[in-house]
């Protein structure tokens, strides 16, 4: 396969994962503010933005957090920008990506671009993004051939997931760090159910430890992924001349 296409697939994987995980991170953040009245929302917002690598605006209220992490097309870290990036990468690899997958990415982008995400209520916006991402990865899984290109897609996704999960944990621990905060983190990863089933409610330990202990059973957690990346690297055996990302 063309090196350029492999690169595009890698970035589709990264951008989609970034959109989904950013959505989960902001959700957890908002939930923490509600659950723990002792948290200073401005400081929490500032530390979240810092963790996500956003330049701090003058005033860090919830609106600013939502703007720079969700709606703003121009902000590097927003969900809208990530979905735009995924769509642009898919457009460049359009003859390789399956028609169904391209269409689901394109419809997703059409539903969020130009501030359309802002028009939804935050909860439905998060739900929408999470569901669309699930549709895309489900479609990708069942309609793309699981060849070399697929490995690049999964590689991008795994690397991004490791990155974003680390940010999620960092954000939660700097904000609150109570037991209920860690439960929220697990819920944010869609991992709470799996965690409770495996370890039971009685499992104690430090908060971060609790979460990290969940890694063998929960796909959305960082720890599981270095192995996956290694496997993808092994399968893809990248030997061509690498070019920088021009996407």
């Amino acid at each position: 396969m063309l090196s350029r296409i492999a690169e595009s697939l890698f970035w589709i994987g990264r951008y989609l994962e970034r959109a989904e995980d950013t959505c989960r991170i902001v959700e957890v953040h908002l939930q923490l503010l509600l659950d723990d009245p002792s948290v200073d929302s401005e400081a929490a917002g500032a530390s979240l933005l810092a963790v996500m690598g956003v330049d701090l605006p003058d005033q860090v209220d919830n609106a600013a957090v939502m703007r720079s992490l969700c709606y703003d097309d121009a902000s590097q870290c927003s969900i809208a920008a990530a979905l735009g990036g995924a769509r642009e990468s898919a457009r460049r690899a359009r003859e390789t990506v399956s028609t169904e997958m391209w269409e689901s990415i394109n419809t997703t982008w059409n539903s969020v671009r130009g501030g359309r995400l802002r028009l939804m209520r935050p909860t439905s916006a998060f739900k929408h993004v999470r569901e669309r991402c699930a549709v895309i990865s489900g479609t990708a899984d069942s309609t793309m051939s699981h060849d070399e290109g697929w490995n690049f897609l999964v590689l991008g996704r795994s690397i991004e997931r490791a990155d974003m999960t680390a940010r999620l944990i960092a954000a939660a621990s700097s904000t609150s760090g109570t037991q209920s905060a860690w439960n929220n983190v697990l819920r944010g990863c869609g991992a709470h159910h799996a965690f409770v089933r495996t370890y039971g409610r009685g499992h104690h330990g430090s908060g971060r430890g609790r979460v990290l202990a969940a890694r063998p059973v929960v796909p959305a957690l960082a720890g599981a992924y270095p192995g996956d990346c290694r496997a993808c690297f092994g399968r893809a055996r990248y030997r061509g001349t690498p070019s920088r990302h021009r996407g």
Binding site: M1, L2, S3, R4, R239
Partner: peptide
């Protein structure tokens, strides 16, 4: 896509010794 062939841009091509190749992962 419908012909099942690669879609290339100029930067994917390399000419050497009067022959043309594409840059692939292999």
């Amino acid at each position: 896509r419908m012909m099942g062939v690669e879609l290339v841009e100029g930067r994917d091509l390399v000419c050497h010794g009067g022959r043309v190749s594409i840059r692939t992962t292999q």
